[in-house]
Simulated assay, not measured.
Amino acid sequence: MTSPEMTVDDLIDLLSRCDRDAPVCQAMNPFFPMSHRLAQVVQSVDETGQTVVYLAEGRDENTQLGHLPPEVAIALAWQEPVQAPPRRPRRSAGGK
């Protein structure tokens, strides 16, 4: 991997070394959704004996790319679509 960005090809190459039936997991915070670069793929076994593959973010200061785009957070069901609040009628200068 020569680029600081992990490509799909890089990920496929790393994942091809793992159990193809294992679920892929990444620990992220849905309450403060941020976009992170991937840096590692680690295969392990969970407490039930099932093989699990974890995708890990990098450790350098450029790993966090910024806020996750709202449409992605919505697609992941981490946020609900936000709509502007309904407009209320304006009050007149006389207070009525």
Rank of each mutant, 00 (worst) to 15 (best):
H67G: 12
S92H: 13
R91W: 13
V52E: 10
D21H: 06
P30L: 04
F31K: 07
D21Q: 06
M34F: 04
P23W: 00
L76M: 09
R17S: 12
S92A: 12
Q40C: 05
V24Q: 06
A77W: 01
R87Y: 01
G94V: 01
G95C: 04
P30I: 06
G49Y: 10
L68A: 15
T7C: 15
V72T: 14
H36Q: 00
P69E: 10
W78M: 01
H36M: 00
D13F: 13
T63E: 05
Q79F: 00
P4E: 03
V41N: 01
S3E: 01
L11D: 07
V52Y: 10
L68G: 13
A93D: 03
D46A: 11
A77M: 05
V45P: 09
V53K: 05
H67R: 14
Q26T: 14
V42I: 13
R20Q: 15
E61T: 07
V53D: 03
H67V: 08
T7Y: 08
D13P: 04
S35A: 11
L38E: 00
L76E: 09
L14V: 04
V82H: 07
F31M: 08
E47M: 08
E80N: 01
M1Q: 10
Q43K: 10
S44A: 11
A77I: 02
G58N: 05
M1N: 11
V72M: 14
P23R: 00
S16V: 05
G94K: 02
S44G: 11
H36Y: 02
A56D: 12
T7A: 13
D13Y: 10
D21M: 06
S44F: 04
A77H: 06
A39Q: 06
E5Y: 06
R87D: 00
F32V: 11
S92I: 07
I12W: 04
G95Y: 03
V45D: 06
T63P: 04
V41K: 01
P81I: 01
G94N: 03
E5W: 10
C18N: 04
I74M: 14
N29W: 06
T63K: 04
A27V: 10
V72G: 09
P89A: 14
V52Q: 09
A93P: 01
E61S: 08
G95V: 06
A84S: 00
D9T: 07
L76I: 03
L76N: 08
T7G: 14
P89R: 09
A75V: 02
P89S: 12
F32D: 15
R37H: 03
P81G: 00
T51A: 14
V72F: 15
G66V: 13
A77V: 05
R91L: 15
N62K: 03
K96I: 13
E57F: 08
R20E: 12
P30F: 03
L11H: 04
